[in-house]
Design a protein around this nucleic acid. Structure first.
Length: 591
RNA sequence: GGUCGCGUAGCUCAAUUGGUUAGAGCGCCGCCCUGUCACGGCGGAGGUUGCGAGUUCGAGCCUCGUCGCGACCGCCA
């Protein structure tokens, strides 16, 4: 038995009354009555009230927040009327017989029970921040989720395999962290953005089912849900089709939700094509917990007197609208704000109608015919108090604009109490049938919508050379409550198809394709099995399960928004000697 | 790189139109207190209002610059 404890601080109950126990932990709070001292002793499990008689234990007067102590004492039922129903151990207390101060604590820089505190400070003293029960809960939930994932994948025959952190620079995609090689001066490794290529090589190696809690690195600007290093549940399987993978991930998520929240998720998750998602929600990661669907009005305004609409249709575009129910009382400022967002999303302006006092108030409604008004009223189910917002443009930008407005409106209406987004609703879905290629106007060439290893849908392969943007990829995104949780694809496993994508479709010069991806194409040529996989954002997953706003809340030692670690003060300068060894000269910023 | 927001005591926040010596709660220090659990009582310490200029008789408040932090946009195959 430990000399430090016989029980933890959330363990003792009335049934223990009379027994002698030893507890160790931190002083969470003290209430010194002079002749009697109460201390809430905290360990990772919870709180226990310890009662000291300072005549016998004078040191109890000197206890301070966060001192580490060991207490031996007798468990006693609390006197009549003094039980604390807020504590699991609230029926009892420990009457201290001995007190050992194992370590003193400086006064904490902020009261640890204060939730709303400057994040700088929390990150600078992260070890104190993590003592708080909420953060302890986050880390332990994260562990429980990781365990559930491992248990599930183990049960499905997966093998956990580590892949290198020191990888090769592949300049496509996210900016990478470069690592200089001392042995090869002037040459660099890169930290992996994901183990993508290795997991495919493991399939060629015949592993068949691989997974890894993979640390990934991206040297891009940060967000609340983005860190320079983050963790993915990364997995890959051979001899599967998309549906096989959906089933696997659905089972895994079901297990995770059961473990973490005790919730039975409904599976299978619905599937929505990219086209349909954009068309009805204006997003490839739609939050369907609220309606506010995009409605198509193209045919109704084909011949409209309102030239903005008719013109868009004539140019091959669409007219679409959404109904922000109950927002007819939007202020001019709010309309302006929405217009700003619409413009930022690529719209030229924002047409709107307020339905107030039985009338349609709008700068544009005078152009509408009765038939057009009737179509509007019917398709948007227009009622008193509604605010209708329009987009008239080519299909993709029109959907995009309204999709962004939809998200913003939902947030505004939710705050105003006009839209209720149900809590504890887990709206999972698969978004599928993405276009394999997107035409990039800047570089005037086709780029992979996701990555160049995604296999085309078999029946679309003939279009690869003729009309690449029409080719659907076997890519899938896992979406939860409007958050992209993960994505993956069935990969190309025939070397000639992979080579064609690199050279004929993406127009990557042969030498570059060879030097960057030659080993992969070569590997495919040695009997690569059909395979595919997915990467699920583990930090985001944990944040959602914890109800946290930011993934920083579920990472033990995260970086701040400037990618710094405020506790260790990194990044920091390197010694001149280190730089000399690496043959690197730091170009100091001006000033 | 851009837009917006924030920066006042250790922490969370006040400070009327630009006007006296910048306040409160918590925390901290000292004394008192045997049933508290947001313990209570009395007393005390603690401030370059992020920094620098400017306007003004006078700036926490206005202007400009700068630094820091955050959110978003760009970016994230």
């Amino acid at each position: 038995m430990s000399t430090y404890r016989t029980h933890h601080c959330a363990e003792l109950r009335l049934s223990h009354a009379g027994s002698e126990v030893t507890l160790s932990g931190w002083v969470a709070s003290r209430r010194d009555h002079g002749g009697l001292v109460f201390v809430d002793l905290r360990d990772r499990e919870g709180l226990t009230q310890v009662v000291f008689d300072p005549q016998n234990l004078p040191g109890s007067h000197d206890l301070r927040s966060e001192d580490v102590v060991r207490v031996r004492g007798k468990v006693a039922a609390r006197p009549e009327g003094t039980a604390n129903p807020k504590l699991a151990t609230g029926e009892i207390e420990v009457h201290a017989l001995t007190l050992d101060v194992l370590n003193r604590s400086e006064t904490p820089p902020w009261p640890l029970d204060e939730e709303n505190v400057n994040e700088d400070l929390r990150l600078q003293y992260r070890y104190l921040d993590l003592r708080r029960p909420r953060m302890t809960r986050h880390l332990r939930l994260r562990h429980a989720v990781a365990s559930a994932v491992r248990a599930h994948l183990d049960g499905e025959g997966f093998v956990e395999i580590e892949t290198p952190m020191l990888f090769k620079s592949t300049p496509e995609g996210a900016r990478e962290y470069l690592v200089p090689s001392r042995v090869h001066p002037g040459l660099f490794y890169a930290l992996p953005q994901s183990p993508q290529q290795f997991k495919q090589l493991l399939m060629v190696a015949g592993i068949e089912r691989y997974y890894q809690m993979a640390r990934c690195f991206r040297d891009e600007d940060l967000r609340a849900d983005r860190q320079p290093e983050f963790t993915q549940i990364d997995l890959e399987m051979s001899f599967i089709e998309r549906e096989d993978l959906y089933r696997l991930v659905e089972g895994m998520m079901r297990r995770v939700w059961k473990t973490a929240l005790g919730v039975d998720l409904a599976i299978p998750f619905p599937r929505l094509s990219f086209r349909e998602a954009m068309d009805t929600f204006g997003s490839d990661k739609p939050d369907r917990r609220f309606a506010m669907r995009l409605v198509d009005l193209t045919d109704a305004f084909r011949a409209s007197a309102f030239k903005v609409f008719a013109g868009a249709v004539a140019a091959g575009g669409v007219v679409k609208a959404i109904n922000a129910k109950g927002f007819a009382d939007a202020t001019q400022g709010q309309i302006d704000l929405l217009t700003e967002h619409a413009k930022a999303a690529g719209a030229k302006g924002l047409a709107w109608i307020k339905v107030e006092g039985g009338a349609w108030k709008s700068p544009i409604v005078k152009f509408f015919s009765d038939a057009e008004k009737a179509a509007l009223a019917e398709r948007l189910a227009v009622e008193e108090g509604d605010l209708i917002l329009f987009a008239a443009d080519a299909w993709a930008p029109a959907c995009d604009v309204l999709g962004k407005l939809r998200t913003i409106l939902a947030e505004i209406l939710r705050k105003l109490g006009k839209l209720r987004i149900p809590e504890n609703t887990w709206d999972f879905l698969w978004v599928v049938d993405f276009p394999l290629m997107t035409f990039d106007r800047d570089s005037q060439r086709h780029v992979s919508t996701h990555h160049p290893f995604t296999a085309p849908v078999p029946e679309d392969v003939p279009l690869l050379k003729t009309d690449p943007t029409k080719v659907r990829g076997q890519h899938y995104d896992l979406v939860l409550n409007g958050v992209e949780l993960g994505g993956g694809s069935i990969r190309i496993h025939q070397p000639e198809v992979q080579r064609m994508v690199f050279e004929d479709v993406l127009k990557i010069p042969k030498e570059i394709a060879d030097s960057r991806f030659g080993y992969l194409v070569k590997a495919l040529s040695f009997g690569a099995p059909p395979h595919g996989g997915i990467a699920v954002g583990f930090d985001r997953l944990c944040a959602i399960l914890c109800g946290a706003e930011s993934i920083r809340e579920v990472i033990a030692f995260p970086k701040n928004a400037k990618a710094q670690d405020l506790m260790t003060n990194s990044p920091g300068e390197a010694e001149p000697r280190q730089l000399r060894d690496l043959r690197i000269q730091a170009a100091k910023p001006q000033g």
